[in-house]
Design a protein around this nucleic acid. Sequence first.
DNA 1: GATGAATGAGGTTTCATTCAT
DNA 2: GATGAATGAAACCTCATTCAT
Lengths: 194, 194, 194, 194
Amino acid sequence: MTDRQDRQDRPLRADAARNRARLLDVATEVFTTRGTAVPTEEIARAAGVGVGTLFRHFPTKEALLEAVMVGRLEAVAARVAELADEDDPATAFFDCVRLLVESSVGKGEFTRALAAAGVDAHTALRGPSEAILGRLTALLEDAQRAGAVRPALAMPELIALLVAAGGAVEQLAADPGARDRVLAVITDGLRPPR
Amino acid sequence: MTDRQDRQDRPLRADAARNRARLLDVATEVFTTRGTAVPTEEIARAAGVGVGTLFRHFPTKEALLEAVMVGRLEAVAARVAELADEDDPATAFFDCVRLLVESSVGKGEFTRALAAAGVDAHTALRGPSEAILGRLTALLEDAQRAGAVRPALAMPELIALLVAAGGAVEQLAADPGARDRVLAVITDGLRPPR
Amino acid sequence: MTDRQDRQDRPLRADAARNRARLLDVATEVFTTRGTAVPTEEIARAAGVGVGTLFRHFPTKEALLEAVMVGRLEAVAARVAELADEDDPATAFFDCVRLLVESSVGKGEFTRALAAAGVDAHTALRGPSEAILGRLTALLEDAQRAGAVRPALAMPELIALLVAAGGAVEQLAADPGARDRVLAVITDGLRPPR
Amino acid sequence: MTDRQDRQDRPLRADAARNRARLLDVATEVFTTRGTAVPTEEIARAAGVGVGTLFRHFPTKEALLEAVMVGRLEAVAARVAELADEDDPATAFFDCVRLLVESSVGKGEFTRALAAAGVDAHTALRGPSEAILGRLTALLEDAQRAGAVRPALAMPELIALLVAAGGAVEQLAADPGARDRVLAVITDGLRPPR
DNA sequence: GATGAATGAGGTTTCATTCAT
DNA sequence: GATGAATGAAACCTCATTCAT
């Protein structure tokens, strides 16, 4: 009776696309700055649409959260791909680290919320996540081979460090000097021990 | 906002004191492992008391959160005080860093929840916080004077780093090796740059 | 309340007529098997049209319900008219009873839903209803005069019995033997008492 | 942590019991006369309590529906048990039939709503249902052995007939004469055919 | 003091209906 | 005429907090 094809793959109507985009923008902004406890109705109002519209686009609050995450991850993945073109392994790796730290602002909150909601976060996030992780793994290994990064460091702790440093940077948003000093500590810490 | 103790200085009856202690224990455990969204009723039940009792001791959920925080900060402050007795400035500072990271002071969630609720987080937390910060400031300065820590580092970013590293460590709870490597990155990063 | 046909007497365009017919078919099927709580959108989808089209033909969900009822009643009225041609009063009456029971005129759900919606159910249903009732009244009187049906029986209770027996038959859809035995009880019960 | 015993088996506090009873009364009345689509809030208001109270007693609308059903079935079961003491099998059986028809008012609506909600209706209703069905089966067999009821009649169709006749009687609530005539048709129909 | 029943504002989600495309 | 996106009232349910027992 209902063909999935019919409902999903048709390109969105102009106004629908506009609304969807506005909702995503607003949700990203709101979730990032005020946490995930913000009522859906408020997000809808801020986007200038009714709740019904929100729920047509994202059938669940979780779905909205997930979509926000996917959007952010995709943007980051794109920029990581650019940076990975750099020739010098050390430069490429540390630029990437800086990028990830600076763009991971607020991400921890999301993953936690998704996890708490019992979502299998991997379903929709896997694609962009793996793109990022794949690149980063390669960059790490190259930089380690080049002697620019301490050999005793694997991906899990690197990820954890990046997410954590992102949180720290977030706290220091008001003081760019402090932010740079945090980044310096992290990057210097990643180099091989003396 | 303030717990019962403060309002009427009558000493708590034995059973009341026991209930208050159990509530704090349970709340610490529950908030830490499952976040602050857990219903008050569940906390009361886990502590073996009725909700009414919980609200007699802590007139607000926020008050309970605050009390939990205060408890944790006080415990940490005590241990920091012990560590500060160490003679070698470098040892003292880095031991303290490790301690603070491992006890994940702050646990982001709490401070955020308190802030979101509009509580002036400093009212009740100021005491123990300042105790910790005072010691840490002194340790930092000593270690910097001794050349063990990079000079370009102030308290705000140190705090941010510690909180962040705490988060990273939390994520890696399952893998002690990774946790140690994170700590190594942070502590090496804190040393003077080459 | 009234469907499009009534408002503008322009004859329906070919595709419009086809859509209207499909909607009625689907709605009859869906309401009958799954109750009246099924969302309009689902009916539209099953009919292969958009919701907008559904509401153009039937300005209200109630209007659709009503149209479904009218359709069923008209079909039954036609068959009752055929049966009434039978010569033997007893045969005619009992055949008619069987027909009405088996076609479950009314299906309780519908009338209730219509009534609950505050529709004056008689406005549009009156025509076909009266056609059926008129015939049935005549058949009942003839059969009573012929001594085939108990004299102490008026239309209201006959109707009620038929609707009720329809419900019983519906419940026993899976077991044709049981269905026949229910019909036997009713028809034997309608004969004059010993 | 939580012992089921602790929560459920304690006798209800006086006010709680009063509220629970009022809620059940109101719900029975409302569901019976106006169907199951009535909002829970309205039931709560009619019972003079807040929604929260309703949901404390019945954690789901379905649970309330089920409780209403159980209550009605238990009442009927008790009366059936009384009637079954009668010596004459025919009298006992037909009295029971009359009772069931008259008390089954509105029951069909409930079972349908429960079924639609996907509840395994048997879980909570099984007890009282089986009590009624067990007695009725025995009465039917006795009456058949005594030659007072047609032999070709099994429980499934008897049940269906009773429920259906209940519906008919409900429709005729305004006219007691008609109601009695319906009952006469049913009971005469149940006797052995001539 | 302790208990847990009661409260009701507020959160998420559904769905009949309207209207821009 | 047809479409389906948008709308928002209203449904169900949760939970911090109060208060009778």
